[in-house]
Amino acid sequence: MADSSLRQPIAVAGSRSRKAGKFQWGKWLLVAFVFGFLGLILLVPALNVFIQAFKAGLPGLLDTFTSKFFLNAAKLTLITAVITVPLNTVFGLCAALSLANKNFPGRSLLISIIDLPFSISPVVAGLMLVLLFGNRGWFGPLLEASGIKIIFALPGIVMASIFITMPFIAREVLPALEENGTQQEEAAATLGATQWQTFWRVTLPSIKWSLLYGLILTNARAMGEFGAVTVVSGNIVGKTQTLPLFIEEAHIQYNSQAAYTASLLLACLAVVTLVLKYLLERRAGIQHRGH
């Protein structure tokens, strides 16, 4: 970010020194194209969520907000995120700490493996869990005998969410750790700090922004995951229905008010996510990249 703010004035000054009239024309044509394209693909659809949700005014919203099935779906989505995010945080931190500032054979392979869930279709991820824990899956008979339900129940939904959001934190924290190096940690160890003390007082404060960035992305994806959860949840209304599943069901039943009210809630989550992401990118100089 700092880099770009240095360069932009140069670029603008440079473009101004060119054949001014013609070049400016090209500039505004391109700007108009960007506004048009993003308008059609992103802006209008995003605004539409708010328009449709408020179509019937406050009563329409309250109708859905107080319905039992909606509340159950919202609760399940929240519970899923509350379990998924901390578990993935512990994993992400452990993986990043194991990989940072170290050199061993297979290191880049391990990084690719951790990134793997981003390349696997969520539906295939869900299918894997069904084949593992479902009725006819590898552990199906064992689970049935011991009375544990994973598929069509909360554990399956959580495992699907964990799978889908696994790489976020490691991939944000790892570059931060690499950039900081190990000098401070070594100094702390020399001064007699234990590993825990070093982690809490030296390492964690130095990566807090990157960690927060990863947490935000993990949470947004965990709350919004649809494909993987569809496969493992069984979509039992009021029991294993998360908010995204509630939206689909309401949409299929032509209950567009309910669908858009639930969408409004998730769209607000997306807006909060984007604002926090934007602030973190500006404050902490975290580079955004594709996910």
């Binding site: 649809f226 939206i247 984007l274």
Partner: peptide, 24 residues
């Protein structure tokens, strides 16, 4: 604003995206 909104598809749950796109 445009720069920030580019990431919307990462932040907006896909069910919401599908719903609003299909309406529009």
């Amino acid at each position: 604003f445009l720069d920030a909104i580019i990431d919307l598809p990462f932040a907006l749950p896909t069910a919401v995206a599908g719903l609003t796109l299909s309406t529009i």
